[in-house]
């Protein structure tokens, strides 16, 4: 290839992409820009969250309302042990106290008694609020020490008729409720998000300091 020939090709290209067409094309160029912008916004805000989280149902349905009416309060099932640790989701042993036999006619009740009570198998509940392993969350400090209500962090789950599907972040493996259902991370209620910043904000407000790392980490 000769040096001059190469140069000419170059000029032609430059010419075709620049100069003459420029004015008429600028609107089209802008349109392309807007298309790119809109598409990526849609992907980022709508498609991405759908891809990021997987949904699964709990082993069977459960009504907090019915149970709360029957036993009176949260602590009957979600209690503190003598050593101050929090027992969390009730074990089969606790449930059996009432559910030795099938009560009522609901499908969930049948599944529970037949598949779990009869077999002596623990129900593999998926916990919406389980913090990562590196977190030490003291229920005692919050419920007993600071006299906080369950709803402040857990929202109105105590008044729910049935269990919502469990959503898991496919990448991190954590429950969606930690980040919150709003992908932007914005929150309205105190229970919408349970990231470190949220703990910190509350601590800062109520205790004057976000606290040291070892207050909540292990």
């Amino acid at each position: 290839m000769s040096l001059t020939g190469e140069k000419q090709t170059g000029r032609e290209q430059t010419g075709s992409s620049g100069g003459p067409e420029e004015k008429g094309a600028s609107g089209v160029v802008a349109l392309f820009f807007i298309v790119g912008l809109a598409a990526s916004l849609a992907i980022g805000w709508i498609v991405f969250p759908k891809l990021l989280y997987s949904k699964s149902e709990q082993p069977f349905d459960f009504s907090h309302v019915t149970h709360a009416d029957a036993v009176g309060d949260c602590e009957s099932c979600h209690f503190f042990r003598e050593d101050g640790s929090y027992a969390g989701v009730p074990t089969l042993e606790q449930c059996i106290e009432c559910h030795e036999e099938v009560q009522g006619e609901s499908e969930a009740e049948r599944v529970f008694v037949e598949e779990y009570v009869a077999e002596g198998r623990e129900v593999p509940w998926k916990s919406y609020s389980r913090q990562p392993d590196c977190v030490f969350f003291s229920h005692a400090a919050h419920v007993k020490g600071a006299q906080m209500e369950c709803a402040e962090c857990h929202g109105d789950i105590g008044e729910s008729e049935s269990l919502k599907p469990y959503e898991e972040n496919k990448l991190t493996g954590y429950s969606r409720d930690i980040w919150g259902s709003n992908i932007s991370g914005m929150k309205e209620n105190s229970w919408d998000r349970m990231k470190m910043e949220d703990c910190g904000a509350c601590h800062k407000e109520t205790m004057g300091s976000k606290g040291a790392c070892f207050q909540c980490h292990k």
Partner: peptide
């Protein structure tokens, strides 16, 4: 430190 966290939990319960 986790032992302190656990001891505090127990202390909270027993006020």
């Amino acid at each position: 430190f986790h032992r302190y966290q656990k001891a505090k939990d127990k202390a909270y319960i027993e006020e």
